[in-house]
């Protein structure tokens, strides 16, 4: 019993929590802002790469695959460090928020690009030919005929990657952007106990858990369809 009390005093101390709540709340808002800004930009860039790929221009496609695989291969933190600590040596100093948006966008343009690309390639070629035969413009073919089918096919990885993007915003803590995790670490230095970390973990969990469940369901259905 005493051990449990000691544990709770450390990891879930109410007084500490009340004291550091304003700091965490600010961090939470920065996390949310970073996610809301980055998610649509990364989606659009990835979609653009995939649509360009769908025109099957030989050299363009080689370049697009190189782009996609390159940014899928770099750990996103390496990109962020390069952008935030490396680029200033070339006279390009980005504020931490912009550096995070850029790093997350480049990284996820690779992931989204590959997901959309695989989806578009999985639509039978007859669809494109039929739509062309009906006299649709190539852009109408891709946006009105191919993409709706493609997106339905890759909904699971699309949702999963979006969740991962929101989770990854926490690396912003490592370039001193005061998002949720960073705020919790700063708060911990004031309270001398891990309550701020527990609180940050719980906030992340409450925020993301419904999406994680949804993504898991989509992925499970995708696997079950293979039987």
């Amino acid at each position: 019993m005493e051990a449990l009390n000691l544990f709770l005093d450390n990891f879930a101390d109410w007084d500490s929590f009340v004291r550091i709540w304003p700091l965490l709340w600010q961090g939470f808002q920065v996390t949310l802002l970073l996610a809301v800004v980055t998610l649509p930009i990364a989606l659009v860039v990835g979609l653009t790469l995939a649509v360009l790929y769908s025109f099957h221009h030989k050299w363009l496609n080689v370049a697009l695959l190189v782009w996609i695989d390159l940014f899928r291969s770099f750990p996103v933190l390496v990109l962020l460090i390069l952008i935030f600590y490396g680029l200033p040596f070339l006279g390009l100093k980005l504020p931490s928020f912009a550096a995070c948006v850029l790093a997350l966008t480049l990284n996820n343009s690779g992931y989204y690009g590959e997901i959309f690309r695989a989806g578009i390639e999985s639509v039978p070629p007859g669809q494109r030919e039929a739509a062309r035969a009906l006299g649709l413009h190539p852009l109408q073919v891709i946006f009105l005929v191919i993409l709706p089918q493609a997106i339905a096919r890759v909904m699971a990885p699309l949702a999963s990657n979006s969740l991962e993007l929101v989770k990854t915003t926490s690396i912003a803590a490592l370039v001193t952007l005061p998002e949720l995790l960073r705020s919790a670490r700063v708060a911990q230095e004031q309270t001398y106990n891990p309550t701020p970390l527990t609180a940050a973990a719980i906030i992340f969990f409450v925020l993301l858990w419904p999406f994680a469940r949804w993504v898991a369901k989509l992925e499970r259905n995708m696997i079950l369809r293979q039987r």
Partner: peptide
């Protein structure tokens, strides 16, 4: 562990 960010 599926929900929390790795860094957290």
């Amino acid at each position: 562990f599926r929900t929390l960010p790795q860094l957290v």
